[in-house]
Design a protein around this nucleic acid. Structure first.
Lengths: 360, 360
DNA sequence: ATGAAAGCGCTAACAC
DNA sequence: GTGTTAGCGCTTTCAT
């Protein structure tokens, strides 16, 4: 019943033909373009025709083929999203936010889950062949060469949670510098003496910026800072924690380049070293994962407002697609959320919306 | 340099034209079909032509347009993946696994993040218009009507972590029945007396199956079982825990329909009721999230082998696309991983690959 | 091995 | 308002 009799038999090998606008037109006794108009929001079409077309379409189970439409309009309304492993809940949050914001803006997501480390971009290259309307690169450690290349092609690109020097690609990032400096000042205000920083990926702008600001602020205060690298990996963060806490002069304050590592460090400090976190030692992170607020962790951390960052990124994409804007960099402000994993300084803690934040 | 002189000027409004196979052909002095062959794996083409085409393509920055190809081949090599909120790490893991497995099989993911509750499927409907080659529905609480509809259209569909009665749609699920029964027997072996079950979504097959098996097994043993519903939501699980633990006859063993809720319950039991979990009370979950193994939780749980489930789902999709198989249901076996959130029974605990599992 | 020609399913002028 | 006519960029016979 769904097959039109006046069409050549289906070629073998190819998937079964779905009803086309042609089939609908034939059944409704109108031209194929009438069918097209019927499915085009602002098109001029009579109520009568519309009804007949809709009836025929329904009967046939017709669905407009967006692939064909994309071919003509040179617009797929699909946005490529490149994101590293979703193990770290920060990325799940980002993806979820992007998914919501892009859907609201009428876009679909072509997902590309790229391992944070290693592999340049074999398959990713292919994603471009799908003619995505734009690309959102989340913390991709990919050579920013790719991003630049896309930009040259005229493809809108936004980097989320990553900046690249000598690149004109737009980006949205949290306040890495300000945040890390704030954490440093906070820990100093807690009167800690021996500091440590656990870095993420040394190739990541996030880790580098946070480290630079943290170290500079601590050293400026004349205090010693140790340093370890854990590549944003949970197990490596555990190893780093064991190393630091097991040393001769263990730190009494550790700042981790992100929450995910901080959670690992927290576990080691408590379970393996019997420390009471927040008293014997302060541990702070960066991101403010949903989990950071859980009672088991109660992690003091500098918040990256994921929703806001996502919204900005989507707005930038939209602007670029509208040709309104060629894009630039934006820094989204955050807050230092004070919880139980650190000591509490004598000043600066204020309550805002049921949360304690540090605003000295 | 990238614009071909013998083509009409670009129409306004439409995005800038990217170089086409035509442009490459002109530059290389061959026919457009030669260019096509050059980018088609098994096509017959001379080395000489291939080189010239490749040179021209490179010079122009040509990328084969997969949209156009999809139109002809009626194959997009894109799989639609519908998944509920990524807040629950179980779904992040599933998505990550699917992403890897689908990429390895040559597919791309069109992501659709559907809230677990509420909204029927407004935008999702549109996903089908993109002519995805298949659909993977992860725990979608969507009416299975959608799934059936797709199947009728001839679109391969696989449900992951969900079954639907009176539906012929393929599915891959963990061992909900066996797993929950095992947890029940385990908690009985721990000699608990008062049991409780915290359900997820009452519309979800996962929650229903787990509940049925758990309750049946406990009641068979003649023990009392309380019940609460938390819709797989973190905060609702906390509320349920407060209700249960604050009652006159609080349970001494709680089985949660998934780990995510179990983690919430764990926190409440400890932080708000001062219980030593694993001694005063046993708390068990279902899934075995990566976090379940973290020292802060050390959650006893029935494992759902995500990688295996993903692999099976992708294999089923492949089979359906090959026409090899129309699909059926598969149950992937799991193990009860014994950790610190429960008492340890006198028998049945064995060590397997550095883990304790219960195999009575 | 290569080119010409005919579409894939749709949108977008352009006449009527 | 509606039909007609060109394509969008590519793959695929079919000749050569």
């Amino acid at each position: 019943m769904a097959s039109s009799p006046d069409r050549p038999p289906q070629k073998t090998g190819l998937p079964r033909r779905a009803p086309t606008a042609h089939d609908v037109a034939a059944l409704a006794g109108v031209s194929q373009s009438a069918v097209s108009r019927c499915f085009t929001p602002g098109a001029s079409i009579s109520d009568d025709t519309r009804r007949r077309v809709q009836a025929a379409a329904e009967q046939l189970g017709y669905r407009p083929n967006l692939i064909a439409r994309s071919l003509i309009k040179r617009r797929s309304t699909i946005i490529g999203v490149v994101i590293p492993g979703l193990q770290n809940p920060f990325y799940s949050s980002v993806l979820e936010a992007l998914s919501a914001d892009l859907a609201a803006a009428g876009y679909r997501i072509l997902l590309f889950n790229a391992p944070a480390r290693g592999t340049p971009d074999p398959v990713l290259d292919e994603v471009l062949n799908y003619r995505v309307d734009a690309l959102i690169l989340v913390s991709s450690t990919l050579s920013s060469g790719l991003a630049d290349e896309c930009q040259n092609i005229g493809l809108p690109v936004v980097q989320l949670n990553r900046t690249a020097e000598r690149s004109t690609v737009s980006s949205v990032v949290g306040d890495n510098h300000g945040g890390a400096a704030t954490v440093a000042r906070f820990l100093l205000a807690c009167e800690h003496q021996r500091f440590a920083f656990i870095a993420g990926l040394e190739t990541a702008s996030t880790s580098r910026e946070r480290e630079a600001a943290f170290l500079a602020t601590i050293e400026e205060a004349g205090k010693p800072v140790q340093r370890a690298v854990a590549h944003y990996a949970f197990d490596e963060a555990q190893t780093a924690a064991r190393m630091l806490l097991g040393s001769d002069a263990p730190p009494d304050a550790i700042f981790c380049a992100n929450d995910y590592m901080a959670l690992a460090v927290l576990g080691v400090a408590r379970a393996e070293f019997g420390l009471t976190v927040g008293r014997d030692i302060s541990i702070a992170g960066f991101d403010d994962l949903p989990m950071a607020a859980w009672p088991e962790f109660s992690l003091t951390t500098f918040r990256q407002p994921v929703r806001a960052m996502s919204a900005r990124a989507v707005a930038m994409i939209d602007a670029q697609l509208q040709g309104t804007d060629s894009g630039r960099s934006e820094v989204v402000a955050g807050d230092l959320v004070v919880r139980g994993s650190t000591r509490v300084p004598a000043y600066g803690v204020v309550e805002v919306e049921n949360e304690r934040v540090w605003r000295p």
